[in-house]
Amino acid sequence: MILPIAEYTVKENIRGKIFYILLMFILVMVGAALVFSSLSPDTEARVITDIGLACIELFSFMAGIFAAVNLVLQEIENRTIYLLMTRPLHRWEYILGRYLGVLVILFINILLMLSVLVLLLKFASNWQWDAMLFWSVITIFFKLIIIVSVALTASLVFTSTVTAIAFSFMVWIIGHFSNELRILSDKVTAPVTKVFLSALYYLVPNFQYLNLKDKLYIPEVMPMHIIALVLLYSLVYTAIVLFIGNLLFSRKEF
C-alpha cells in the first residue's frame, strides 16, 4: 500500500514545476562554476566541485523541505486527504509512502545534477574520478533523508507550512553548527546555558558528520567505519522523527 502513495507523490512532483526549477538551478550551477573556476587557475577542479556540491545540496534541501511540509497539509487543505483516509489504508502507510515519494524525487534530482557536475568537471578541468565525490553525494542524500522527515513531522506539529519551513531551516543551521555548540557548551559556566546548549547538541542532528563535501580535501578524515556509523545514526534519527510524526498523524481528525 505504500507503493501507490509514493508513486503518486512522484507523479505529483514530476508533473508540477519542480523540473523547471531544477533546470534553472543546473544553469546557475554551470554558470557560477565556469566563471569562478576561470578566476582561479590551478584550482578549477576544486572550485567546480565545491560549487556543484553546494548547489546540489542547497537545491535538494529547499526542494525537499518545501515538498515535505506540503505533503500532508496541502492534502488537508484540498480535502483530497478525505478520500485516502477513508480507504483500507493504514495511516502510517500513507505517511511513509508520501515521505518515500519525496526521497525518490530528490534522488532523481541529485542524480541529474551530479551527472551535469561530472560532465562539467571532465570538460572544464583536469579532474580525475575520486570516490570521495561519490561519498559526499551519498552523505548529502542522507542529510536530506533526515531533514525531509523533520520537515514532514514539523508540518504535522505546527500545522502551518511557514512555521514548519522556518523550523526546518533552524534545524539545518543548528545541525551544521553542532560542533561549535559542543565547544560552546564546554566553555560556558552558567549551568542553565550549559544544559540548554548540550540539549541542543544532542537533540538536533549533527549534520557536520554528514558534511563530507566540506572535507573532500582532508586526507583520511572520515574512515569507512565512521561513515557507516554516521549513516546508521541518520537512519535511527529519521526513524524516531517519523515515529513521532506517525503518532501525531494517527490521532489527527479531519
Binding site: 507523479k11 508533473r15 484540498n78
Partner: peptide
C-alpha cells in the same frame, strides 16, 4: 465508498 462535498482531485492525473 465516500464522495465529500465539492471534492478536489489531483489535477495532474
Amino acid at each position: 465508498g465516500y464522495l465529500p462535498e465539492s471534492p478536489y482531485f489531483y489535477r495532474y492525473l
